Every structure is written in structure tokens, then in C-alpha cells.
Simulated assay, not measured.
Amino acid sequence: MLELAKEKAIATTTVKSGKYTVLLTGSPVKELFSYYFARSNVSAVYDQISQWKINQKIQGENIKGDTINMVLDPKMKNSIFSVPYDQDGVALDKVAVLENGILNKYHGSNRYSYYLNQPTTGSIANMEFLGGSKTIEDFKKSPYIELVSFSDFQLDPLTGDFGGEIRLGWYFDGEKTIPITGGSLSGNINEVQNEMYLSKELQQFNGFIGPKTVQMFDLTVAGIQ
């Protein structure tokens, strides 16, 4: 926290508007991956917010990057959301929802599972994503923008749009690295998830365990015109 505060104090500029390779690091990764949790929820399918089907390749065909693997764990350590039963009294067990980019099963409440004639997993709030094929050091061998702090990073689970105003990041042009602030990031997860790389390094934020950094390509950064 002290190191980030120091970097924020010396960051005085942003980059030119354009398309960049973006490394998303820290808490914004949790918000980004909430897309997979929301779209695989049986209530979202029932309400037709999500059109995902069982056994669907949710990242599309011919994936160039890492595949998404999501497990819901009701007994996750260091999470305030860990419980043995949900609010309906359903006994909770670990469940693999996404395996190698394929929707294995829906998750959610007993009521909505009954509506769609699906096996019930119960309501589990803890989500765990496996790491990927590269290290953070691998990501930083070519030019990038790494973003760690936003004024309000958000993702719309209906459309997949995500973005926010940049508070702190670093721009590496191939030779030097400078702290940046200002401007904004925007993108759509459906457009980048086919070639998205996840770090081997993991992080935990309460009920979330997942990659510490995600590498995405050709994302729009609005900065200096």
C-alpha cells in the first residue's frame, strides 16, 4: 500500500490514446472474472440474461490464450462467505463450473435450479480460478500498460463491457517504465477472452482466488489526444 501511494504521488501523466497490450493486476481482476460467475448462474439463465448452454465453449473456438477454469468452494479458507449450507438449507460442496473454457454446469439456488430442471449446487459465493501458462515476468518482456488502480472499475455482466478511470498504472515502451495516471480503459471481455493470458501467480481477495495479473491485447486506452 505504501509503495502504491508513493507511485501515485509521482505519476503525473498518461499515455496517448490508442490500442495497447494491457496487464490488469490486483483487485480489478476479481471484478473482471465476476463475469464468469454471473453468466453461469442458473438464475441469470432463467431470466435470459445469460444464453450460456451446458458444454458450451464459452471462450469460443480455437482459443489462443489460456482457458478459464472456475471452481466454487464453500469451504474456502480466509473467506467470510464460507458456509456449510446456503440460505435454503442445501448442503454445499466444491463444484467445478468451468473446465478448460467449457461450461460444465450451472450454479445457484435450489429454486432456480428446479425451474430449469438442473442439479442444484446451492448458492456458493466463493470463486476460485486456476492460474495460467505465463508468469508476470513473461508478460513484461514486451511493451505494455499495467493497471492496478481505478476510480471505479466496473464490468457489465449483461454485455461484457468493462472499464474505468485510471488512477495508477505503469507504461513500458520497451526501454523505460514510467508511472501513469488519468485517462480511461475500455473493452469487452467477449472480444478479448479468446486470446487472454492468466498469470501463474495467484492472489486472494476474501471470497476470490485467481490470477494476480491478466494479459489482454488491443484494448482501448483514452488518454492524450
Rank of each mutant, 00 (worst) to 15 (best):
Val148Cys: 07
Phe37Ala: 06
Gln51Leu: 12
Pro28Glu: 04
Pro143Tyr: 10
Gln193Tyr: 04
Thr181Ala: 11
Val90Glu: 12
Ile178Gln: 07
Pro119Cys: 09
Ile178Glu: 07
Thr177Gln: 14
Ser184Glu: 12
Tyr85Glu: 15
Val192Gly: 01
Ala5Phe: 11
Glu175Pro: 02
Asn104His: 10
Phe139Trp: 10
Val148Ile: 12
Glu191Gly: 05
Glu31Ala: 13
Asn126Val: 06
Gly163Trp: 00
Thr14Asn: 11
Ser199Ala: 13
Asn62Asp: 15
Gln118Val: 09
Pro157Asn: 09
Val90Gly: 05
Ser79His: 05
Ser82Cys: 11
Val45Tyr: 02
Asn117Asp: 15
Tyr36Thr: 02
Gly169Phe: 01
Gln51Pro: 08
Asp86Ile: 04
Ser27Phe: 11
Met216Phe: 10
Val29Pro: 00
Gly18Val: 05
Asn190Trp: 08
Phe153Asn: 00
Ile80Leu: 12
Thr213Glu: 07
Lys105Val: 08
Asn194Phe: 02
Phe153Pro: 00
Gln203Cys: 07
Gly223Arg: 01
Ile80Val: 14
Thr121Pro: 03
Leu72Phe: 05
Ile80Arg: 12
Leu2Gln: 13
Ala96Asp: 14
Ile124Gln: 01
Tyr115Pro: 08
Gln87Met: 13
Thr12Met: 06
Lys212Ala: 11
Tyr85His: 14
Pro74Asn: 08
Gln154His: 09
Ser40Trp: 00
Arg111Leu: 14
Asp86Thr: 10
Arg111Cys: 06
Tyr20Ser: 04
Gly187Met: 01
Asn117Ser: 15
Leu155Ala: 06
Ile145Ser: 02
Leu202Ala: 11
Ile166Phe: 04
Leu103Met: 09
Lys57Phe: 07
Gly132Tyr: 00
Asp88Pro: 04
Gln118Gly: 06
Ser109His: 07
Asn100Met: 05
Ser17Gln: 08
Lys16Pro: 03
Ile189Asp: 00
Ala38Glu: 15
Gly207Ile: 00
Met1Gly: 15
Ile209His: 00
Tyr46Lys: 14
Leu155Asp: 00
Ser82Val: 11
Asn117Ala: 15
Thr213Pro: 03
Leu92Met: 10
Glu31Ile: 13
Tyr144Ala: 04
Asn55Leu: 10
Lys140Glu: 15
Gly187His: 00
Thr25Gln: 11
Phe153His: 03
Val90Cys: 08
Lys200Tyr: 09
Tyr144Trp: 11
Val42Phe: 03
Thr213Gly: 04
Ser123Arg: 04
Lys176Glu: 14
Phe81Leu: 13
Gly163Leu: 05
Glu191Tyr: 10
Ile49Lys: 14
Asp173His: 10
Ser79Asn: 09
Tyr171Leu: 06
Ile124Ser: 00
Phe172Gln: 06
Ile224Ser: 12
Leu92Ile: 09
Ser199Thr: 09
Lys75Leu: 10
Ser199Met: 07
Asn190Gly: 15
Glu99Lys: 13
Tyr112Asn: 08
Leu168Trp: 04
Tyr106Lys: 04
Thr159Arg: 07
Ile189His: 00
Ser113His: 08
Val97Arg: 01
